[in-house]
Design a protein around this nucleic acid. Sequence first.
DNA 1: GGCAATTATGTTAGCGCTAACAAAAGCGCG
DNA 2: CGCGCTTTTGTTAGCGCTAACATAATTGCC
Lengths: 339, 339
Amino acid sequence: MSRKPRVRSGSGVTMHDVARAAGVSAITVSRALNQPQQVSPALRDKVMQAVDALGYVPSRSASTLASARSRTVLVLIPSLGNTVFLDTLAGIETVLAEAGYQMLIGNSHYDADQELQLLRAYLQHRPDGVLLTGLSHAAPFDDLLRRHGLPAVYMMDLADDGRCCVGFSQEEAGAAITRHLLERGKRRIGFLGAQLDERVMKRLAGYRAALAEAGCHDAGLEWLDPAPSSMQMGADMLDAALAARPDCDALFCCNDDLAIGALARCQQLGIAVPARLAVAGFNDLQPAAWCTPSLTTVATPRREIGIQAARALLAMIEGDAPQALRLDLGFALMLRRSS
Amino acid sequence: MSRKPRVRSGSGVTMHDVARAAGVSAITVSRALNQPQQVSPALRDKVMQAVDALGYVPSRSASTLASARSRTVLVLIPSLGNTVFLDTLAGIETVLAEAGYQMLIGNSHYDADQELQLLRAYLQHRPDGVLLTGLSHAAPFDDLLRRHGLPAVYMMDLADDGRCCVGFSQEEAGAAITRHLLERGKRRIGFLGAQLDERVMKRLAGYRAALAEAGCHDAGLEWLDPAPSSMQMGADMLDAALAARPDCDALFCCNDDLAIGALARCQQLGIAVPARLAVAGFNDLQPAAWCTPSLTTVATPRREIGIQAARALLAMIEGDAPQALRLDLGFALMLRRSS
DNA sequence: GGCAATTATGTTAGCGCTAACAAAAGCGCG
DNA sequence: CGCGCTTTTGTTAGCGCTAACATAATTGCC
């Protein structure tokens, strides 16, 4: 009957050790830590003293296993290299940290299949909820969520099908910036798109709608490339666009990276911005205000999206009424020198 | 004796359900999933079929609890808003994902105390190892790591005290870019520093050493601000620097954000760069190549640091010889128009 | 002062998995 | 064919914690 003792993880101090040191039962330690108001001040102090003295750190695994709650939230984003999602993450983090939840971050690399694999892998941690980027996911995705009874909040965009979402209308934002270029007297307004994810395609749809409305839509002014965007790519696309359509008098770039690259190439080529060619970006990243000339773009409330999405998810997890199911945080045009 | 059944987490399918469906014992399922070569192909197939049919997802908590291994690595970085650390994270991610490990990300906001709190909080997950940014941490930090027997790899810099580190010499990099400015004939070279974390201070030390060596160190040419850096701040610091020392003929900015802000202000003020004032940054972020004029800076191998650090940590976790304890990945001067 | 209602603390069992041991099956070879 | 050896599968117990129930201590109120 004398087996080898197992290896202890952590520093090896368990709740029972704390209980013994404090002269109470284990459950009292558990309560002193998790529902302090249920324990008399005297015992609570004794427990806390023992915790400090022994350097006790509770085991999340054991807690998760016993309580069927992990106090963990899964966040799936398309890229770790895009400031947009990082700002969102930072917002999420503040809310979750305060509530004692921890964040598992999955990077799908803009790929729906990989996203599904990530969800499968992270389900092993039994997250209490999921924060998702965008509305469209691989087919079995929402199914999996349902089967596991996982509350989810969709970020960055707005759905109309009852899913809980926090974001703004990508389409309207695309239309708004296009209308601004129209107001500036531009008529042959081009579109530069990279990555071609869901959000870019909606901005494109908005751009088309605004131009159609003004009677100047021209499919020959759209340049789309599914490769990830970069400033280099913006510069290259500008070359290609002007070579193909020298009459183009404005460009709406699907994000600031492309726009800044295009702007830099205009500088190199001596193209007058905005007189000869106006340029607009999307997202209002930090360099947009500091490049030459400064970039007209659309400011997106990404940090706030993270905050509100995290709050909504926590509300769903805690079982409260799922409050606003559809939270539109809007966007703002940042009009600068490039238009 | 008939108590209420507990709530099941996940979809409710356990390893025993799979075992029953496949007509084997639970341990065989465990082995089929974790050490497939130990199970005969016939049983393995039966198990896998049952897994798929039932949609079984193993519980990481239960596994961690039973095996005292979490297959989780804690990564502590100073900021989620700085591309430098995100590139590092992306590198780490590729290595860990491949090895079946998952990544817990803690954001210390450049604060040693907060970092310590984060470590405490994340220890609840019993990570198998820790990846740290920088060498200096709060006093009880390394103590905690030791008490919990946690292997750690220090990233971004190089230590000489036997700690396992992957990075490059911040000091040498600072000296190298300063020497480059000296070679360009500049003599009153200023330093703009923000955040003032460990790495910035080492770059500053390198800058001082290079200037002292050339006999032109001048403490009046250093402008330091502990606030987080931004392009706005770079612009403001440029104003302050030129107001205080109009004779300054070059500026080494502790990072590209400051440098780009300073460069943009030079454009606005009509200051000739590099003739009247040369400017250099640090990190070689994407915009550095695309601002006007393009920015001379130091390219840092941050993605590679993440990759190598993660590999070293996994080696330590798996108990292999801790290979190279000190991995210098170097840096590269990117000489562009601003100098 | 006595009884019900309300805390405060304790006991027990089990969450889902895997280490350690045990037993059974297959294998090589004289 | 039978002996030791390896390989495959199973049994048992327990990782550290908390839900559910049980009991003891306290309180309120007529």
